[in-house]
Design a protein around this nucleic acid. Sequence first.
DNA 1: AATCCGACAATTC
DNA 2: GAATTGTCGGATT
Length: 912
Amino acid sequence: MNAVEIEEAVSDLARQPFDPQEFAFSFLEAFGNKPTTIKRLREGNTNKSTIVGGVLQRNNIHIVVSENGKVEEALTLLRETPETRKSKAQFILATDGQDFQAENIISGETLVCKYQDFHEYFSFFLELAGISTVKQIRESAFDIKATGRLNKLYIELLQHNPEWATAERRPDMNHFLARLIFCFFAEDTGIFQGEGLFTLTVQQMSMSDASDTHEIISEMFRAMDTKLKDREKNNIKAWANKFPYVNGELFSGSTDVPKFTKIARSYLIHVGNLDWKKINPDIFGSMIQAVADDEERGMLGMHYTSVPNILKVLNPLFLDDLREHLEQAGDNARKLLNLRRRMARIRVFDPACGSGNFLVIAYKQIREIEYEINKRRGEKNLSSEIPLTNFRGIELRDFSSEIARLALIIAEYQCDVLYRGNQLALAEFLPLDAENWITKGNALRINWLSVCPPTGTGVKLHGDDLFSSPLDQAEIDFDNEGGETFICGNPPYAGSSKQNTNQKSDLKDLFDPHNIRFKNLDYISGWFWLASKFYEQTDGAYAFVTTNSICQGEQVNILWPHILSNNQEIGFAHTAFKWSNLAQNNAGVTCVIVGVRISSSADKFLYFEDSRKNVRHINPYLIDYRDVFIPRYSNSISNLPKMLKGNQPTDGGNLILSSEEKRELEEISPDSREFIRPLFGAKELIDGSKRYCLWIEDDKLQKARMIPQIKNRIKLVKQARLKSSAKSTQNKAGLSHRFIQIQGYGRLSLVMPEVSSEKREYLTGELLGANCISTNKLFTVYDPEIYLFSVCSSKLHKTWIETVCGKLEERISYSNVLGYNTFPLPKLTEKNKKDLTECAEEILIARERHFPATIADLYDPKKMPKDLKQAHERNDEVLERIYIGRRFRNDTERLEKLFELYTQMTNHLKKV
DNA sequence: AATCCGACAATTC
DNA sequence: GAATTGTCGGATT
């Protein structure tokens, strides 16, 4: 269950009459416990409570229903009962149906309320449902509630107004919902005269069968679009006249409203009765996005950026600098004024703004700084000089773009209340500014200068002007104002093979004219490209949260030379962190944050999880070293023997046999032995698991097909290949008795796993004997000299691979062309080779000594055996002496030497 | 003809 | 259920 579902279940429970017998079980059920779990508790099997009528669920909660008026005592009893502690209950809860008290034993927080109100505090208990309540989700209890209610309303309305669900009319539906949210907010904050005016009017004026609800609402909308002086002329009904003139495009256009059902009407009243003052524009938009987005429904804002992550972008991008200036200004009125003027001209532009998180947070942070300035200048009541129109965005999805605008409006109002008081906030709020700087459209198809022109005087684009040509240089007055523009955001990621045709063509149109090999780039690189272009024209800097893959492997050499050649540099970067937000199913991706600016001598910072380092330079691999771009090499620059990829089956699993399947097949048909070989991928290598494959030479095909089981498997391979979306695979359907790609086999081979854990101290290569087949999960050197094993097992090699190759999240991803072929190794003497061979043998012997321990066992960083560790140390020592005559002090030193050597060696190559 | 990558995916603890 | 850690094969060069 997600938070919205839990909220609904808890609210349902609270509405029902109190049942002392059932309460504890119903409560647990509302928090997502399965019926079987409840049943076992009810039967007492898992109920650890020793209190009469108590229910104690291990690791979770101890609940008791007390006698009337004895709640306080009951809670004390719960707290003091030894079982509570023994069963590690996190919560205790007591109620008599009147009063309700609970305590989070771990944090010490307590909850005391009336029974009928406890559903308001459902977020207090969210950990019961396995939802880790970071402080934020507690604070967004309202947003969760509102999202759930609005979702119900939205679905009900769409169901009964199917024409509103069509692609054509969805925007109207979304606009309608945005208007509703505005009204709910306005009626609870005094923007409308009279508490709950909107909801109350619906309730009182429309018939309870809902037949005219849409007309009533429509009339109110019409009023809000009509200036007071024009109302009589336009026959605004008297009861609607109580609504102020709002407009600001929010109420202009069609006042059409979908027809309501009785249920929809009651949903609307229900939502309206929530206390919308509590809306949190930071997060609300992201949650509410799920309401209208079919794809995101159920995911609940899987891809919205959490506030801490937004600040990781905004702080180093420009907020830290503003705060520093504030610090320096002290109480100097002049300096403070200058800072305020500067801030009033700062534009924040998010070209993938979703529901506006980055913009809202940026706005609120700037307002906070402005307030401090005004306080120091003794101008507390001064109205803000930060124009909302300086916060601009582009968003593809219609609903999100509506919400982004609304979120900004709400944020502005809330800031005014916070810093200037209710009265002043109200006095200046309406009518809304008619300008809307959230553009709906495809950011990769819009000229960013037209959304965010350097002068602030440019024209706004509407959705239908998307494919505009670049603005004429003459239209842009560069000397004007000199305000800065900061671009930020979390644009969409899509790996090269995961992009749809539209996304592909977006990139094609951007990159093809510049001969950039866009087909291997992640979709997000379009944003980096356009942002870099943007700053050819204007001052400022940009930073995005991005998948780490654009700072790794081959993408570095495709994308970054073009960005950094623009007299631009990476000003700050945040190294890899796992994506996470409050959604229950977090997207599986590892992110980095990269900030790019016009080259300058200002400080550069590399941020790590909980520290930052002032560095000389940040290169696109996000390390402190000068820019190096490593391309693919088809041969080793150090003249090492050719390393090939293993054999790729693409067989739908039909050429591969488990131990079990192998045994069965051999039992049924002993002749099949001839065609079965051990198969090695990374897993088999590392975990020591066993797999086998059918390996049938072309000239043995006839014989193999005599065995019915094999014949059948070959048929299944063919079927699987024909089903593939790749032409090349379909074409090989005829050769279904063998792997789709055959690189080599049957000799002694050195193999390196393609993907392996980053936790091990060394890469775990291995020597495989004859007859073994390696899959495409292993890279292979056939008939290697043994010293090569020493090289590939060294710390130097691991450091290089981990730096220049791609990654799967944080996993190390080996590559022959990017890593092995580019690995710089000094020319080895015969003596060197002999020494290294001895080291290699020592490692192999050490592994052997611990038979049958697997590689995974042996290289577990906590359990690595001493002798194996020593063998590796020795190996590193011998190899590193060849490089610099001593051991390297650390990985930084290793990398510097490797990069230096790489540069030398490849320069030499070019000369040849 | 050969390889990089995955807003991952399957398995384990 | 979250922690761990590498499959599989498409798309591209």
